[in-house]
Design a protein around this nucleic acid. Structure first.
Lengths: 200, 200
DNA sequence: GTCTATATAAAGATAGAC
DNA sequence: GTCTATCTTTATATAGAC
């Protein structure tokens, strides 16, 4: 049929499966057979799509995942309330709705296992797509006089992501409430600590 | 000589080497050869000390590491200023002086790779040794009227650890200052957000 | 306690058929 | 695009010498 299967439909499914596994278990702990078996394929088939093997697949998939985080955060920030509170809540909801982006593992485990210079590319991408997007909003809030003038937007942006992502591991031993409710409470504390004032 | 080498000196060195590597790269990415080679040994020698192989070594080492975190946090909290601020600063300094305890990786990657029931033991240990110690201090501060009455000490304890540990991965792309200075700034924001009052 | 040697299994990678 | 081998490397694990 003329209607279906653009050149890379199966490649897309491959990227999706790989993304989920890499995000969950990291680079080394994920095997090509893990990935191919969830698609009903043999691991040899993956080399058709990625001649560079596991590393090329990981870099491609992680690049896409980081960009997706960037787009997701951007959209979550854009829509909904224009207040800083609304934006942080939107960002937190998006982060909690997706698999944790474990930046400690990425920088300390996954990246060092890669040979190529794509290591730098990925870490820069994290900065551009995730940190900078939040940082921009914090700078705006600061310039608009909504939060303390002496706050450090770069630090806050990175810390906010680490804070929210860490909620992914909390349910295991301390879950009394939903993660969104927990995120909202932390955001309120953060905003109060920043002397947040909504009206100019 | 009568003076030296208690039965397990070489075992201690093995545990130290293993702890550093496991903490840095995680369970799967660390190989027995990685560990043995830093000691100038062959990997076969490790089976003398740990007949259960890699898994037994990992569990032993991780158990000890978590306990060490518990003791380190307890001591950091105990000495220094008795105020909540002093205790949080002490805890943060201790955490930043040691390799990151990546709880996301531990719970999502390392633990699922273990067969035995030691998985539960380790996660409970994290709760007992790390979360609970901080939680206790937050409960005290709450009961003493030093922080908001409606704050959730369990959530705050877990979030605090995640927040501080995430600073381990920040320097890669956003380091303008030392991590301790960044931690202190975040603690001030947190305390302000909790309406912290030092004098009763 | 540590070694050499070897067994076994798993994982990345390639070649060539369909 | 995907498969069936097959190759090579790496890793866990065991046996037995020193």
């Amino acid at each position: 049929m003329l209607v279906s299967n653009n050149p890379s439909e199966s490649k897309e499914r491959l990227l999706d499966a790989a993304e989920e596994l890499f995000a969950q278990k990291g680079y080394t702990a994920t095997t090509l057979r893990d990935i191919s078996s969830t698609l009903g394929l043999t691991h040899a088939s993956l080399y058709y799509h990625f001649p560079g093997g596991k590393e090329e697949l990981f870099v491609t998939v992680t690049r896409r995942n980081i960009r997706r985080h960037g787009e997701g955060l951007a959209e979550a920030i854009r829509r909904g309330e224009p207040s800083l509170r609304g934006k942080l809540q939107g960002a937190a909801r998006w982060l909690l709705a997706h698999a944790p982006m474990d930046l400690i593992r990425l920088s300390h485990s996954d990246i060092p296992a890669l040979q190529s210079s794509s290591a730098n590319e990925l870490m820069n991408l994290v900065y551009q797509e995730m940190i900078l997007r939040l940082q921009k909003e914090l700078v705006s809030a600061k310039e608009g006089g909504h939060i303390r003038a002496d706050s450090d937007p770069g630090l806050l942006a990175g810390a906010f992501i680490g804070l929210i992502e860490s909620l992914h591991s909390i349910p295991e031993f301390a879950a009394r409430r939903g993660r969104i409710a927990m995120a909202d409470e932390l955001i309120e504390i953060l905003l109060k600590g920043l002397e947040y004032k909504e009206g100019v």
